[in-house]
Design a protein around this nucleic acid. Structure first.
Length: 259
DNA sequence: CCCTATGTTCCCAA
DNA sequence: CTTGGGAACATAGG
């Protein structure tokens, strides 16, 4: 589920409930997740996001890093009952964070704050079009693969890659090094627009995405191409197609995404 | 049985 | 070395 806008939604909502709170207890329901030793009793100093990773910054220069992968979600609740597929429970004085993850791909790790990560730039922190244009010059992979490569740009997954490319009028298979500087600028603007609106809508609930408080997002009402195979393009009336790229369903309008 | 799924990593081939 | 393709991970749903 979660790409940058969904993780950003959780990040903002977690700040509302656990900044300054003490971790009373951590229950690892599914040991496949990894270890969370030694964090009980620590105060949450901050919450941050980089790409699709979410970190709880703790005392002692430590951070608990969550990655939700395909089907992970977080739920804030006061109750004791476990929803199906609950993998981890972090308890505070006035509530608990439940990590729910049917496919069990999610991960939890402990890092020292400041350890460098292999993630690329975050498109909300500044999509540096001229820097990206430069590193794109020797890169012949399709532009959609480039956008989704977390080492180069962190946070864009399959849904938003499709949406951004449609907004920027770019064909997903276009060679990365064939984009002009002007097209990179256009792409940066499209990314910013698509992602900020998705955040304002608290994410895209096309399947089972819910925010921290269990509510659906609203961005599914604004999707331009994702999931719209064989329907009319809102911009030009063309017929939206779906084809595979690197094993992922790729939605685009062959009529207006020809650049 | 088939196919699909919002992510990442690894292996293999060209 | 790079790039690209596919499988794997584990589970649910159509």
């Amino acid at each position: 589920m979660p790409e940058l806008p969904e993780v950003e939604t959780l990040c903002c909502q977690l700040r509302q409930v656990i900044i300054g709170a003490k971790i009373e207890k951590i229950d690892v329901i599914d040991p496949k997740l990894g270890t969370t030793e030694g964090l009980e009793g620590k105060i949450v100093r901050g919450i941050r996001r980089h790409g699709k990773t979410l970190s709880l910054e703790l005392e002692g220069n430590l951070e608990l890093v969550l990655h939700l992968r395909m089907t992970g979600r977080l739920l804030w609740s006061n109750g004791n009952g476990l929803e199906p597929h609950t993998r981890l429970v972090i308890s505070f004085a006035d509530g608990r964070i439940f990590l729910i993850d049917p496919r069990r791909f999610g991960t939890v790790t402990i890092n020292r704050i400041g350890d460098c990560s292999s993630l690329g730039c975050d498109p909300l922190e500044g999509f540096d079009a001229s820097h990206l244009w430069k590193i794109a010059q020797r890169c012949t992979i399709p532009i959609k693969s480039f956008l989704m490569d977390q080492r180069r740009i962190a946070g864009i997954g399959n849904i938003y890659a499709c949406e951004i490319l449609h907004r920027a009028r770019l064909y997903p298979w276009r060679k990365t090094n064939a984009l002009s500087r002007a097209e990179w600028t256009e792409l940066g603007g499209a990314a910013k627009e698509i992602l900020t609106r998705a955040i304002a809508c608290r994410g895209t609930s096309v399947s089972d995405w819910r925010d921290l408080f269990g509510r659906e997002g609203e961005n599914q009402d604004y999707l331009l191409v994702y999931g719209r195979e064989d329907t009319a393009c809102y911009r030009c009336g063309g017929r939206i197609q779906r084809r595979k790229l690197n094993g992922r369903g790729t939605y685009f309008c062959p009529t207006c995404q020809n650049g």
